[in-house]
Amino acid sequence: MSTLASPGTAKATTAPKSAGPLKRFWRNNGAGYMFLLPWFIGFFGLTAGPALVSLYLSFTNFDLLTDPRWIGAANYVRIATADAKFAASMRVTFTYVLLSVPLKLAFALLVAVALNRGMRGLPWYRAIFYLPSLLGTSVAIAVLWRQLFASNGLVNSFLANFGIDGPSWISNPGTSLYTLVILAVWQFGSPMIIFLAGLRQIPQDMYEAASLDGASKWRQFWKITLPLLTPVVFFNAVVQTIDAFKAFTPAFIISGGTGGPINSTLFYTLYLYQEAFGFFRMGYASALAWILLVIIALFTAFSFLSARYWVHYDD
């Protein structure tokens, strides 16, 4: 992945050999800052400033109506020790992340490998598999899911053909979360496209050489495809995991905003939303937001550290 190259690389080629007006032109710092002005206003006014304020708020009691009142680490202490809903939302979110991301990536990789054999109709298959991930975050799709897994919905009508009397998947706390996992897996299209791009970059002659040596397709997959694809697997895993931690809309629509039944779909972001905009506990919700940031940062750091041991980078 060459995407994170620093802009410093551009500088070396910029330095003009002919001096004079050109040199003076590039020396002008003002132009750069003028072009960055909108971003600077946004960065200080909407990102850096609010982030600091939210850190402050997380140590206060704040209900929007009266001024924030400093209460030290009380929010964090309560979250850690006395908040059953927080514990439930962590359990739900981690279950969702740990189930949906590996399943989604496994499907994406499986289909990408199948499509990469150089077969007819590839653009058609690719388009069909991509469509759900393009539509997926709409409320319309969440609405559809609500019907699919309702007690008399499409899934149960289908099961009834086989004489199976399915439960109401949505309103059963034992199954509701899994309907959301299925929704996530259904949207495997975009990681699949990224896998396809990665597969295309593996030199064909490696497979030819392996075939000549008598390596089976199965062996070729484990010994050539997967190792060479690990940078793409890594990238997809990080992006999809961060995204899964932030999932909100489907759980909100399917549970009617409650995270129910019995907190079984109480995604972390949904809990945060309830605290902030349902109960107006803005200080408490800020603490929740910072905990989310720390979780995502820890996960990212852990991924990059572990990458040294399993991600194969070209020399």
Binding site: P50, A51, T269, A285, S286, I296, T300
Partner: peptide
Amino acid sequence: TLMLPYHVTLIPQYVL
């Protein structure tokens, strides 16, 4: 800033 989850800026932005 790409890494920052928007939840962290959400509440102060709302107040603003």
